[in-house]
Design a protein around this nucleic acid. Structure first.
Lengths: 340, 340
DNA sequence: CCGCCAAATGACAGCGCTAACATAAACGCC
DNA sequence: GGCGTTTATGTTAGCGCTGTCATTTGGCGG
């Protein structure tokens, strides 16, 4: 009659239920489930049977609260539809595998205020570490991160100072090397096709690096075309059409990334322009789509998977926020391809 | 001396700290932060100031435990690199916006055992609802889901019976309609290029639907080529080359999806085959990449964003697991394109 | 056969929060 | 002006688990 808990499943199976069935105390069950401390073989057997019988699922909220350790890693990326971020997540997943940690992914939509809200929201889950794409945050966001004491990795770029740890590549340098590579190939009449860089700040860094390299050789970007929106294949196609309508004498067009550049190749294919021969095209990222083109895209390969993997390995390898900043350069390489 | 908690930040700011500073009880702070119950204007002011001053971040683990409601939605998708799933997640995010719910995303890698583990792991967070791609699960997984009492939506396909709610489209029907469409256009010598369907079970459904439609018209699939691995543009390109090497007389090739079909178009472009004129190509999904091609892909548009959005809206609209199953057909449409 | 140690188990408090029930003022209303 | 009623706040008792101490048992050397 005085049942402490209504019959059956209403409130869910708890440790207490399992302990009762297995004739041991709750803490013993808890220890067995976490492989913690010495346990008699028969007891373990009995408890595991009870777990199976009851279909017990531990409550991580309670566990995390009691042990003040959630086994969560917060991740904030600006987008999931831009394939580079899922690839970073792939690296994160691979490094998390078998560690008992679980990633919580949030998407900021390239908006720093949204990012700030997400940081607050994720910190509320008491993650043990946090990975955030980019080095650029609101002051408030930075303060919350520092104040939380959580280990932070900022990934993708290493062009400015991180809070603790940055893992990625120098986009400015990548842009610069792109310029040098193309100059070395003899191109002199440069066009640039980009997308909205108020949101994609790294695209701007690459652009600036490119301009710097050209400047050193006294070469100018003769025409620039920027799409006011996120990068996409369609935008790349349209923008190339547009820039070519303005200047017919370009010998190379550098795109803000591979999506845009792939669109550029599509425009060429449709308009009967032979890539490289008539007009050289250059991208950034080394995406599959670009490499599968009839004329594989000349581009820069960024190691997205490695970035995610490295960030997590580094974070889980330390128990506290580190004293000193660290910057890990995962590098990049120019893919020669067939378009430049 | 007898400080209950070490000075400063060591253990983090709690409700108690804020309450103390604002000269109110903890519950008042809690209520204010959740907009719950009537609050005096001056009290609210005072408390909010204290929150700001202390930099208080609520502990959701504790909150969820106390209220047995985590404000989490678990999501399991087979992949993030296949762009259709990020698009579903986009719909989920959009529906979750402003509800205070947070999605926890897990990736099963097209493996049902992994999926089962993920389900266990996500249920441990006591989510209020769960979205899972696909209707196919291990018995154990299904049992856990049912036993948990959590509201479940199974998304993408509606070709068999869901646990509670299915949101998606009939892939078999889509395949069937593809067949009818192509027959109606006069094609008779069909080839099929696919990818590994032990993992991508929906691709197989579309294939079966296609074969059924052809069967009704006494037309046969004269050649089939399947890549033993996940779909990709590169695989599509290679497989089309392969199937054409075997049969030169095909007049249409149906691909398992747009990635594969895009690869097919690339092969054609490289080999001087004119899409539609020399060989018709047909995909599935209606991805941007296919539509941006010089010859926009003829394909079937699946409404990924809508699927995610609908699933969440439906789940959050109910407070309990429903008594009756429901199937929501988000439909699809054939895009005529320029390749078939 | 005693004392001592390690192995195995348990009791208890408390993590930080919130539901549910008080309580205490302030406000009409006839 | 007594009574119900709102509006604002507080008290109490957990949510389900785990850290920190006991406590119990058996083994074993002397």
């Amino acid at each position: 009659m005085g049942a402490k808990r209504l019959a059956g499943r209403q409130r869910g199976v708890t440790l207490a239920d399992v302990a009762l069935l297995a004739q041991v105390s709750e803490i013993t069950v808890s220890r067995i489930l976490r492989n913690h401390g010495p346990i008699g073989a028969d007891t373990r057997e009995r408890v595991m049977a009870a777990v199976r019988e009851t279909g017990y699922v531990p409550n991580r909220l309670a566990g995390g609260l009691a042990s003040s350790g959630s086994k969560l890693v917060g991740v904030i990326v600006p987008s999931l539809t831009n394939i580079v971020f899922p690839e970073v997540l792939g690296g994160i997943r691979s490094a998390l595998e078998g560690t008992g940690f679980q990633a919580v992914i949030a998407v900021s939509d390239y908006d720093l205020d949204t990012e700030q809200e997400l940081i607050a929201s994720l910190l509320a889950w008491k993650p043990e570490a946090m990975v955030i794409a980019g080095l650029d945050h609101t002051d408030m966001a930075r303060a919350m991160l520092v104040g939380s004491g959580v280990r932070i990795a900022e990934v993708m770029e290493i062009d400015s100072q991180p809070i603790d740890l940055a893992v990625g590549l120098s986009h400015r340098q990548a842009g610069f090397d792109t310029g040098q590579y193309l100059l070395g190939r003899g191109y002199r009449r440069f066009g640039y096709v980009g997308h909205d860089w108020t949101s994609d700040h790294r695209a701007r860094l690459r652009h600036d690096g490119l301009v710097a390299a050209l400047g050193e050789a006294k070469v100018e970007l003769v025409e620039t075309c920027r799409f006011e929106g996120p990068s996409s294949i369609g935008a790349g196609r349209d923008m190339l059409a547009q820039i070519l309508a303005r200047r017919r004498d370009l010998d190379v067009v550098v795109f803000s990334n591979d999506d845009m550049a792939t669109g550029g190749v599509f425009h060429c294919l449709g308009a009967g322009i032979k890539p490289k021969q008539d007009l050289a095209l250059f991208g950034f990222n080394g995406l599959d789509v670009g490499q599968a083109l009839p004329t594989p895209l000349s581009t820069v390969r960024s190691n997205r998977f490695l970035i995610g993997k490295t960030a997590i390995e580094k974070l889980l390898g330390q128990r506290e926020r580190p004293e000193t900043r660290e910057i890990i350069d995962t590098g990049y390489e120019i893919i020669t391809g067939a378009t430049a």
